[in-house]
Each structure stands twice: as C-alpha cells, then as structure tokens.
Amino acid sequence: MIVFVRFNSSHGFPVEVDSDTSIFQLKEVVAKRQGVPADQLRVIFAGKELRNDWTVQNCDLDQQSIVHIVQRPWRKGQEMNATGGDDPRNAAGGCEREPQSLTRVDLSSSVLPGDSVGLAVILHTDSRKDSPPAGSPAGRSIYNSFYVYCKGPCQRVQPGKLRVQCSTCRQATLTLTQGPSCWDDVLIPNRMSGECQSPHCPGTSAEFFFKCGAHPTSDKETSVALHLIATNSRNITCITCTDVRSPVLVFQCNSRHVICLDCFHLYCVTRLNDRQFVHDPQLGYSLPCVAGCPNSLIKELHHFRILGEEQYNRYQQYGAEECVLQMGGVLCPRPGCGAGLLPEPDQRKVTCEGGNGLGCGFAFCRECKEAYHEGECSAVFEASGTTTQAYRVDERAAEQARWEAASKETIKKTTKPCPRCHVPVEKNGGCMHMKCPQPQCRLEWCWNCGCEWNRVCMGDHWFDV
C-alpha cells in the first residue's frame, strides 16, 4: 500500500509500505531520502505521535493516508518512550493509558441525555464484534464512529474520518494533550489543546475536521460531520418502519427517538411537499423529531443533505422563500418566477423588478396576487391545505425507538455506581478489583462488596467470576 509523507509540512511524497511495516522502518526510509538522522524524526498522525514499535496496521493507516513527519531533536526523557523501550505506560498493571487514536474515538455516547454525564468515556458498548469485510486488514473493525456528507465523488452519507490540525499553522502536526470525549470537544473551536510539532510553531489549540472515509482524499478535501447519525450498535428499532437498520439518525429530543435514513428521507420529502418545515429565527429551515417532541429541531442543517441534490435544492429554495415571508415580504405569483420581494408595508401595487435578471417585471396586487387592478379585489380565496398535519407515529413504536432507553438498560445490566462519587462504572470481565475512572475520584473498590478495596476482598473473592 501507499502512504503519503509530508516532511516538515512540505509537499508530500509517496512511500510504499506493508501492513506489518513498523513506524521506525518508515522513519528509516524517510531519513534516507531526506539525509537526516532517523532518531530525530517524529511521525504524527490523527493528533498522535506514533511509536517506533507500532506497525502501519496498528495505527489504522489506510491506503493513501497522509502522515506528517517532522525533524525535531529529542528532548530529555522522550527518546526512550518513542523507541518502544522502557515506557512506564506499558508496564503490566499500570494505570496510565495511551491517548486514544482519533481513528478509534467514539462519540456516540454523547447523544445520551444530559443526566448521563461521564458515560462518553466510561461506558463502552460490546456491539462492535462484526466481522471485518472481505479485503480489510485482519482485526480491523467495521464499526463506524462518525458519518459525514461527502460532496465529492460519493454525493451521499458516508463513514467519516476525524482529523485534527494546529489552529495556528493549519498543519496536521499537532499532538493532542488528551483525546475528545464528546461532540462539544470536536465542534467547539479551541476547546481542546495540544502541542504543535512543526518547527518554530508555538500553536497549542486544536482544530478538528472530518474527511470522507470511503475514498482517498487530499489535504484540502473536508466534509461536514453529521453528528446525529450513528451506527445502530444498540439495535434500536426505527420509529417509523420498526426495522432494525444501521446507520440511524438520533433526534435530540428527551427520548432520543431513532429513525433509519430511508424513513428520514421520506419524512423530509413529505414535509417538504406540504411546505411544513419549521422556520426558526436562529436555526433556519428545519424539522423536529418525527414524533413531534418539543425542543427537538435539527440544529445542523447539513443533515438535510440526505435528501439528495434535487430535493436539497428545493429545500434551500423553500427556506429562502419562507425567510422572505417571515420578513413581511411577498413572492411573485407569476408561474416560473417566484422571486422574493420586500415592498413597503402599505404598498398595494407590487412590481417584480426586472433588474439584474432576477425579476420578471410582472405587476400584481398584494392582496389577491392577481395582475394589478384598481378598486376592490374580486375574490380572495383562503389558501387550502395549509394546516399542519401531524406525522403519524405509532405510540408503541415510539416507545421502542428510544436510544436513551437502550442506554439505561445497558447501564443497569453492566454497571454499578462507584461507592464514593456514584458514577456508573462498567465491568466487562476481569477481577473484582475496580478503579473509578473519574479523575477527581480514582477510588479503588470491590465490585462484589461495593466497598473500598481491602485485604478481605483480596483474599476471599479477588478473582471470582
């Protein structure tokens, strides 16, 4: 396979590697080409510095992935760790964990309700045991953590790749202090920090972006993250068709209702045909949960890209028209025109101005929308079919299609509260000796007794199943 190397943020060049090629071997190839010592090179990928003893497969490097290699003399205490030698983080029983690669970060837990604080980093599902597709590297999971809308060759929703760059020099040479644990960490600028490894760059702020994971991409090709779309790892039924499908869209209502993408497309087109989208002054033209839940309008309007190009163009047109109407304007009634106009409040005669090729020149009556006339309008008909009709959803289907309910059931079956801080902690095999993952707590306690870890627990039921 081919990976592209950008040395000291210059133009990239291809390097041929195998899945079992080590990072140090990659350094040696680059060092020979650039005429520099291999031990002064640092390989940066997806916000993480890659260790010498890791392989291309370990690092989730795919065909035509772009890695950054910078030349920086080692500072005291760094060289041993980078070589894969006596790194205290690798000691058996050590409590410190390697910062998780962005290629394996899962933010789907952050669609849980606000009262489930902490689960994004504490609760991990076991539903990723799908067998890898044919042709994928051994052991590589097909679980997708992110979804994007690819405006490039795909023109559809695709699995996405999370990447990070330095907000100062805009190069992907920043190593994160810690990985993101929720969508806010990724979507809110300057929320996460790190250290830029580019020479002479003092940058410390992280800037995240997404790429389409279905095809090789260049540095400049980015895609918009659709953070309401998630892999259906909890096997929730769709609120409309009641099938279990994946991926799904999880509405931001209190129940976190789930809808499959085909039904979401149908829901949007139906509402669009009836012009029953909601115009929100802050958000724009949007839709609420299909069950009509309060405070559930979709905030990231790129989710409506699921409509496809033709329907999305209609959505944008109707949204612009609705904006004009909300501002007190009118639409030209001549067939084939429909231009938005903003006449004076007491102006009865409205002319669709033909300047700049935008208007048709038609003069019409503001009251009856017919060709302009003197005197009273002959008839004014009330528009028919403008009443909002509820999208029919079966109550039982709505009850079963809740992301929140599956989460709470998982928590109930696989977790116990920490005796000190009461945060839910998952036990997935292993011994009875637990350690609270909350940095402010870190209590060592017994899963069996529910009390602080002691010699009695150690001698009596340390390794009970």
Score class of each variant (00 low, 15 high):
residue 395 E to D: 12
residue 58 N to W: 05
residue 105 V to D: 14
residue 358 L to H: 15
residue 382 E to Q: 13
residue 119 L to P: 15
residue 64 Q to T: 09
residue 312 Y to V: 04
residue 14 P to R: 05
residue 308 G to A: 05
residue 458 M to I: 15
residue 413 K to C: 13
residue 180 P to E: 01
residue 209 F to C: 07
residue 183 W to L: 02
residue 149 Y to G: 01
residue 158 Q to Y: 03
residue 232 N to P: 01
residue 349 K to A: 07
residue 285 Y to V: 04
residue 408 K to R: 08
residue 184 D to K: 08
residue 354 G to S: 10
residue 144 N to A: 05
residue 425 V to M: 12
residue 329 G to M: 04
residue 79 E to C: 09
residue 295 N to T: 06
residue 285 Y to E: 01
residue 458 M to C: 15
residue 89 R to E: 15
residue 464 D to Q: 15
residue 119 L to I: 11
residue 65 S to W: 02
residue 339 A to T: 15
residue 350 V to L: 11
residue 348 R to I: 06
residue 454 N to E: 02
residue 341 L to N: 14
residue 430 G to H: 15
residue 381 F to Q: 07
residue 419 P to Y: 03
residue 181 S to L: 06
residue 315 Y to M: 06
residue 441 C to N: 01
residue 210 F to R: 00
residue 306 I to A: 09
residue 114 G to H: 13
residue 90 N to G: 14
residue 224 V to Y: 14
residue 363 A to W: 06
residue 394 D to L: 05
residue 101 S to C: 09
residue 283 L to D: 07
residue 269 V to R: 03
residue 205 S to G: 09
residue 196 C to A: 01
residue 226 L to M: 10
residue 68 H to L: 00
residue 447 W to D: 05
residue 351 T to G: 04
residue 266 L to D: 15
residue 62 D to Q: 15
residue 416 K to Q: 09
residue 409 E to R: 09
residue 411 I to R: 10
residue 130 D to G: 10
residue 288 P to Y: 05
residue 83 T to R: 11
residue 83 T to Y: 14
residue 185 D to F: 00
residue 291 A to T: 05
residue 208 F to G: 02
residue 345 P to L: 09
residue 51 R to N: 11
residue 434 M to D: 01
residue 347 Q to A: 11
residue 125 T to V: 06
residue 239 I to A: 08
residue 437 P to Q: 09
residue 363 A to F: 09
residue 37 P to C: 08
residue 244 V to M: 05
residue 309 E to P: 15
residue 194 G to Q: 03
residue 104 R to Y: 09
residue 339 A to Q: 10
residue 207 E to Q: 09
residue 279 H to T: 06
residue 414 T to H: 13
residue 435 K to Y: 15
residue 332 C to M: 02
residue 111 V to W: 08
residue 197 Q to D: 13
residue 231 T to I: 07
residue 113 P to F: 07
residue 358 L to E: 15
residue 40 Q to P: 03
residue 177 T to Y: 13
residue 199 P to K: 09
residue 2 I to G: 06
residue 412 K to A: 10
residue 377 C to E: 03
residue 76 K to L: 15
residue 73 P to Q: 11
residue 403 W to I: 04
residue 184 D to A: 09
residue 237 T to N: 12
residue 96 E to T: 10
residue 180 P to C: 00
residue 288 P to T: 07
residue 35 G to Y: 03
residue 56 V to R: 00
residue 187 L to N: 06
residue 104 R to I: 06
residue 225 A to K: 02
residue 218 S to K: 09
residue 130 D to C: 10
residue 395 E to T: 11
residue 7 F to C: 03
residue 245 R to I: 04
residue 342 L to W: 10
residue 213 G to T: 09
residue 40 Q to D: 15
residue 386 T to F: 12
residue 184 D to L: 06
residue 10 S to A: 06
residue 380 V to G: 07
residue 263 C to I: 01
residue 284 G to A: 03
residue 63 Q to I: 04
residue 63 Q to V: 06
residue 174 L to G: 00
residue 78 Q to K: 10
residue 380 V to Y: 11
residue 154 C to M: 00
residue 12 G to W: 03
residue 166 C to D: 00
residue 33 R to V: 04
residue 37 P to V: 07
residue 225 A to G: 08
residue 66 I to Y: 10
residue 407 S to Y: 10
